[in-house]
């Protein structure tokens, strides 16, 4: 409401970020848009966008994989966050460290370590063989890619949900019990609705990186998968296909924006979504 009258200090304080985002966010976005709508000679064209119909399978598969990963993360993450929020302060901080620990390590390294574990000649497989079970052939399957997504992004689901859970005032829970709710009803009628903003940001924070990932599918998919991220990466490695790559990126961004808009509907404008 008071946007039009900002103090000199505010303008100075915000200028580094404005410069930063102009160089590293706005400008690249404009480049992507430029490349998506031009051909190799720099002429305006819809050709790139129209040619994307051949990638529809890639889009659908990526969407499917990330939706499954997000759903599984939610199903594991919500109960985990709920249990964490109900434990004592001490247990809580231990669980928090355990949850955060993997996040201190690069995503890439985590994916590699998962690969080492699940590889066809890896630790898990050798263990299974040693106790007389058949050899595991996991790498290269759909499940491996989805597992990778869940493994890498689960903490991003748990944290916002956990935060919104511990923010719930005890009095709401007491009021709920006072009005006749058992603990299951309290969970469904009070806790769940009050944590919707947390769920929405958790879903966003898992869904967006899942749909655009490329190294998870490359490493755990054993090269047999081509998700949107892989497609974009491959096309930007060759200058000839820059334009198609830009078009794929643009469509993916629009896809993500639409998904976010849908999710925003669920959160009832209660809180801004952190993307």
């Amino acid at each position: 409401m008071m946007k039009n009258k900002r103090s000199a200090f505010e303008r100075v304080a915000s200028s580094p970020y404005i410069v930063w985002s102009a160089i590293f966010i706005i400008a690249p976005l404009l480049f992507v848009a430029y490349f998506a709508f031009t051909d190799r000679d720099g002429n305006f064209t819809f050709e790139n966008i129209l040619s994307l119909s051949s990638y529809s399978e890639t889009f659908i598969m990526s969407l499917g994989f990330s939706l499954i990963a997000t759903t599984v993360c939610l199903l594991i993450g919500y109960p985990l966050a709920y249990c964490m929020s109900r434990t004592s302060e001490r247990t809580r901080s231990i669980l928090m460290v355990l949850l955060m620990l993997p996040m201190w390590i690069s995503l890439l390294i985590r994916t590699y370590s998962l690969m080492a574990l699940l590889d066809n000649g890896g630790l898990v497989s050798s263990f299974l063989v040693s106790i007389g079970l058949p050899k595991l052939t996991f790498i290269g399957t759909d499940a491996a890619v989805i597992l990778g997504m869940i493994y890498d992004f689960l903490p991003y689901m748990v944290l916002p949900i956990y935060t919104s859970l511990i923010k719930i005032d005890r009095r709401y829970l007491e009021a709920s019990a006072d009005l006749g709710c058992n603990s299951m009803q309290t969970l469904l009628k009070v806790i769940l609705p009050l944590t919707t903003p947390g769920v929405v940001s958790g879903v966003t924070m898992v869904f967006v990186p899942s749909i655009s990932t490329f190294y998870i599918s490359q490493k755990l998919g054993g090269g047999s998968f081509d998700l949107i991220g892989d497609t974009i990466e491959r096309q930007f490695q060759n200058q000839v296909t820059y334009h198609t790559g830009a078009a794929v990126s643009l469509v993916m961004m629009i896809l993500i924006l639409i998904s976010l808009a849908i999710m925003n509907k669920f959160s009832d404008n209660e809180e801004e979504i952190i993307v």
Partner: peptide
């Protein structure tokens, strides 16, 4: 508490913020 024939008006009310007036009362 949920099995007692007792209801409480809490200090600072503790109205459910996700429900409107009607739904709070009907809870």
């Amino acid at each position: 508490p949920h099995k007692r024939h007792v209801n409480t008006v809490f200090q600072k009310y503790a109205l459910f913020p996700h429900l409107n007036v009607y739904d709070n009362i009907a809870f």
